[in-house]
Amino acid sequence: MIEFHNVRLSFGEQLVLDRANLMISEGEFVYVIGDTGIGKSTFLRLIYMDIMPTFGHVRVGGYDSSTVRRHHVPYLRRSIGVVFQDYRLLEDRSVAENVAFALHVTGAKRQMIASRVHKALSEVGLSSKEHAMPADLSGGEKQRVAIARALVNDPVILLADEPTGNLDPNSSRDILAIFEKVNKRGTACIIATHDYSLLVQRPGRVIKIQNRNFYDVV
């Protein structure tokens, strides 16, 4: 489903990936680890085609970075949910509005938006906070809203960039439990992290980025 083929990526003179190859199948649960600044976030951005390889190509579903047209990328992103360490919630909108936002941009009908927002929020255990504003939520709750927003479009891939980086151990466990539940439904989860305790709590495939390439850690 996700394939990196001879990918080279550089920012100016800085080489981040060099002839890197990788394959991730449908429904996999994958951790991406590596030192800070090694390119974990960049790896995720290549998947949702926020940046394109300098050489080689990344294939996600039916989209190939070497042939995809710019105006087709939004349609790829609708099948991918992305969660960040800093949540990236819109502070001037309620919890429900934040989640609904991901559906509004796809032009979904109002009735459908209401029911899917409700479903996504109950999936992350935040049905009672629909009308709350992000400022009134804890870090763990904010991250759950971000996950609900990522899930509301029923993605086939869920990408998480240090999702527990700002959370206490209990909240981290809750977040991981949500990922596990989503993965059981068939959604591939790819989590970039340097919190190795997660790997113990919920084992999965571990990919390490090192020397500008990917290595499976057994």
Binding site: R78, L90, V105, N153
Partner: peptide, 16 residues
């Protein structure tokens, strides 16, 4: 710009 970035992330088209 943060809203725009979030819009792009969740699949908003350029026109939207």
């Amino acid at each position: 710009r943060e809203i725009i970035r979030t819009m792009k992330l969740v699949g908003a088209t350029s026109m939207f």
